[in-house]
């Protein structure tokens, strides 16, 4: 949906434009993939290296996971594109309920 409004009226020009546009986007995808791999490596490394306390490691790797998921959602799943308002609303509502649920089960499950 990002480039549908950019019609010049000439189909071959439009297609050429679109090709370049998606090629450019694909480069971003590869960059975000590299970042994801990099974040994964850091997460694994911070566990493999025994020096840190779990008070540091656990929040740290959770943060890395969250960042990585944002990459997945916004780049790989194109949630940054236009026309994803309803998906965003519903996915984040789901995340809200998810966080409540997990929070409950690590705090008040009673013994």
């Amino acid at each position: 949906m990002t480039n549908q409004q950019l019609n010049s009226g000439n189909p071959s020009v439009d297609i050429e434009y679109r090709r370049r546009k998606s090629a450019e986007e694909m480069r971003y995808q590869v960059v975000s993939f590299s970042l994801m791999i990099f974040l994964t490596l850091i997460a694994f490394a911070s566990v493999a290296i025994k020096g840190f306390t779990s008070w540091f490691t656990v929040p740290f790797i959770l943060l890395l996971a969250a960042v990585q998921v944002v990459f997945q959602l916004f780049y790989f799943m194109h949630m940054s594109h236009k026309g994803h308002e309803a998906p965003q609303l519903f996915l984040f509502s789901g995340v809200f309920v998810a966080i409540l649920t997990v929070l409950t089960f690590v705090t008040i499950v009673w013994w």
């Binding site: 409540l100 649920t101 409950t104 089960f105 499950v109 009673w110």
Partner: peptide
């Protein structure tokens, strides 16, 4: 096991 898990899931 823990039976309170059911209570929470059921009421969520």
């Amino acid at each position: 096991g823990n039976t309170v898990i059911w209570e929470h899931l059921f009421w969520i």
